[in-house]
Simulated assay, not measured.
Amino acid sequence: MEQKAKIDQACRTAEEFTKLYYESTDKRRHLISKLYLDTGLLTWNGNGITGNERIQKFYMDLPSSDHTLTTLDSQPILDNAVNGQLSFLIQVSGTVKYQDKGPKSFQQSFVITAQNDKWKIVSDCFRLQEPLASPDKS
């Protein structure tokens, strides 16, 4: 596939995929494991969870959420890096509100791959954007 066509496909796929992902996270969490490979990896604020069943349990234990996206970008991953398997890198930023707490900024990156006509998450890295602690000046 021509590179420009792959980039266009990556952008369209990112829009469709993130809409499904954040609707699932915010409203249908009990279905979230279907979006991950069986061996998928979630890194959530530095905590690693492997396997879609363990990821499902992790999400079910989180408080209810409401995500709002502000940026979305995607690009194809070079064929030789993924043995020719159609895969995309998706990068997202926005705000998330958990239960009655105020909104917090977040950043998230996904690597997704095509499997049986469905997109599956290979790797997912989520991070709340909080200021770094200032070093002690004593």
Results as ranks from 00 to 15, higher is better:
residue 2 E to V: 12
residue 6 K to I: 08
residue 7 I to D: 14
residue 8 D to R: 10
residue 9 Q to M: 11
residue 10 A to F: 02
residue 10 A to N: 02
residue 10 A to C: 12
residue 11 C to S: 15
residue 14 A to S: 10
residue 14 A to P: 11
residue 14 A to N: 04
residue 15 E to F: 09
residue 15 E to A: 13
residue 18 T to F: 13
residue 20 L to F: 07
residue 21 Y to E: 01
residue 22 Y to Q: 10
residue 26 D to V: 14
residue 26 D to R: 13
residue 29 R to Y: 05
residue 29 R to K: 12
residue 32 I to V: 15
residue 32 I to A: 03
residue 39 T to L: 03
residue 41 L to T: 15
residue 41 L to V: 15
residue 42 L to K: 04
residue 42 L to Q: 05
residue 42 L to T: 07
residue 43 T to E: 12
residue 46 G to Q: 01
residue 48 G to C: 11
residue 50 T to Q: 14
residue 52 N to E: 04
residue 56 Q to R: 05
residue 56 Q to T: 00
residue 58 F to T: 07
residue 58 F to I: 03
residue 58 F to N: 04
residue 59 Y to E: 01
residue 60 M to N: 08
residue 60 M to P: 00
residue 61 D to Y: 00
residue 64 S to L: 02
residue 69 L to A: 02
residue 71 T to N: 13
residue 71 T to M: 10
residue 71 T to Y: 02
residue 72 L to A: 04
residue 73 D to H: 06
residue 77 I to H: 02
residue 85 Q to H: 10
residue 87 S to E: 06
residue 88 F to E: 05
residue 89 L to M: 12
residue 89 L to Y: 03
residue 89 L to R: 12
residue 91 Q to W: 07
residue 91 Q to A: 13
residue 92 V to T: 15
residue 92 V to R: 02
residue 95 T to R: 13
residue 97 K to M: 05
residue 100 D to R: 08
residue 106 F to Y: 13
residue 106 F to M: 03
residue 107 Q to S: 15
residue 109 S to C: 13
residue 111 V to W: 00
residue 113 T to F: 00
residue 115 Q to Y: 05
residue 117 D to I: 01
residue 119 W to Y: 06
residue 119 W to M: 04
residue 121 I to F: 01
residue 122 V to Q: 12
residue 125 C to M: 09
residue 128 L to H: 08
residue 128 L to Y: 08
residue 129 Q to W: 00
residue 131 P to A: 06
residue 132 L to Q: 15
residue 133 A to D: 07
residue 133 A to S: 14
residue 134 S to P: 05
residue 136 D to R: 10
